[in-house]
Computed example of a mutant assay.
Amino acid sequence: MPSFSFQIAIVIVAFVVSVYGHDCTKYSLTPSDQSLIDMMKHYLHTSRKADCPVTPSQQDIGVTYVRWGKKICPGNSDIVYAGQAGGNKHSNKGGGSNYLCLPSDPENGKAYSYANDGLYGAEYELRSNIKPSGLPASLAEKEVPCAVCRRKGKVSVLMIPGRKSCYKGWQSEYSGFLMSEHKTHHSKDFICIDGNAKPLDDRTSSENSALFYPVRAKCGSLRCPPYKDNTEVLCTVCTK
Rank of each mutant, 00 (worst) to 15 (best):
M1S: 15
P56I: 04
R150D: 01
Y124I: 05
C238Q: 03
N98M: 05
N108W: 14
Y20A: 09
A82F: 05
C224Q: 06
V80I: 13
V54W: 02
S91Y: 13
S128A: 15
Y124D: 06
A137E: 14
H182P: 06
G109W: 09
S113L: 11
F212Y: 07
S32R: 05
K41L: 10
R163S: 08
G62R: 10
D189L: 01
N98E: 11
V215L: 07
T231P: 03
N116D: 14
E125V: 13
Y43V: 12
L158K: 15
D60C: 04
E125S: 12
G75F: 11
M1R: 12
T46R: 13
R67I: 01
S180C: 08
P145N: 07
Y112L: 07
A197V: 05
H185G: 06
A147H: 00
D194Q: 05
I160H: 08
A9E: 08
S97T: 13
K228R: 08
M39E: 11
L119I: 12
I12E: 11
S209Y: 05
L36W: 14
Q84V: 14
V66L: 00
T184I: 09
K71C: 04
V66W: 02
G176E: 00
T231I: 05
D105G: 03
V17Y: 03
Q34W: 05
W68L: 00
M159V: 14
M39N: 11
P199E: 10
A140E: 12
G121K: 03
D189M: 02
S205E: 14
S3I: 03
